[in-house]
Each structure stands twice: as structure tokens, then as C-alpha cells.
Amino acid sequence: MNYDFNFAPVLANYPRLLEGAWVTIQLSFGAMVAGLVVGLMGAIAKNAGPRPLRWLVDAYVEAIRNTPFIIQIFFIFFGLPAIGLRFSPNVAALVALIINVGAYATEIIRAGIESINRGQVEAGIALGMKRAQIFRYVILRPALRTVYPALTSQFIFLMLTTSVVSVISASDLAAAGNDINAETFASFEVYLVITVIYFILSIGFSALFSAIERVAFSYPLSR
């Protein structure tokens, strides 16, 4: 092994790494929040929507879940302008991420809603709850609690997926790494540092999700 590790030029570029990491955090967080909304709407449509809408949701979920993200983002950035839809790279990245995670969230939340026992709903009706109340307290909240682990690991996976967005010239953490690599040629060192930062981010997001879980789902379990 006669290789001289040279981390100095990588670490000297730490402001750019931080800037890139910040974009990655924003993209991830934005896509998680919006993806959750898409997932909720998708799951509700799948559950209670008219048949054509259910088919549409099915097609969306299957198309996204069975094709790679990198193809989806190429399609959105390079293909969609042909029909007049044009986004800047970071916005295109966010749109692609939302569309992607929305499909997974739809599927996860749908499974959660289906896991709710009919008897619970009937109990809610018997108690004289309104439809919206039943949906919110009897269906949605327990469903979300059931699928929370699946949802959050999907979100972590999403955060890691953002590393692909530099292919459309978005300026995330991986793009900062690519730029520094192009200037320093210290490839291994650059990508090792970047990987460590992603690892820290995934630990950070995990901690955030546990904190949210404690706050949002701390009411006693009833079996």
C-alpha cells in the first residue's frame, strides 16, 4: 500500500461541503413533508376515491416504485421541458424527490389504513363521532403510528437518494464532492468525507424521527 492520503484539500473546502450539506438537508426535509402530504392524499384516494382515481393512483405508485430514481430525474429535468414544464435544477430535484417518495408513502400509509379494524370505526360511529373525527382519530392517527417505522426508514432512504441529484447539476452535498474531486483529484478522500457527512445526516434524521415519535404518538397503546 503506497498511497499518500491527502485530506487537506478536502477539509480546506469545508464551507462548500457545509453549503452542499445544507442543500441536501433542505431537499430531504422538503421532500419528506411534501411527500407525506402526497402519500396521505394518495392513500385516501386509494381508499375512498372513485374507481378511475384509484387506478390512477395505482399507476402512479407502480410506475415510480418499479423504475430507478435516476431515470425519473432525467425524465423530469430533460424530458418535461418538451411539454413546457421547466424547473431550475434544485427545484427539479425537489419535484423528482417528492414524486418519488410520495409513491412509497402512499403505499405505506394505505397499508396502515387497511390495518385498522372495522370494529374501531363502528365504535367511533356508536360514540357519535363525526366522519372527519372518525377519520382523524380512529383511522389516521393509529394508522400513522403503525406505519411510522416503515415511513421513517423510507425517509432516511430518501435522504440517501438525494445524492443522485447532482446528475442534473443540482448543488447538493454530492455535487460539492464532485466539484472538489474535479479540482483536487483526491477522489477517495473526497468521497470518504462526503460519506461520513451523509452518515451523520442519517443519524441526525433518525434522532429527529424518534423525537417526533415521542411527542406525536405518546398516548397509551390500547390493544
Binding site: 440517501l160 437518494t161 477522489s187 477517495f188 462526503i194 460519506t195 452518515f199 442519517s202 443519524i203
Partner: peptide
């Protein structure tokens, strides 16, 4: 906890 893309880069380089 790390991106597959980075795993590829690290093995490659």
C-alpha cells in the same frame, strides 16, 4: 446509513 452512490465511489476509488 450512507448512499449507495457513495459506496460505489468508495469501492471504485
Amino acid at each position: 446509513g450512507t448512499p449507495l452512490l457513495m459506496q460505489l465511489f468508495l469501492v471504485f476509488f
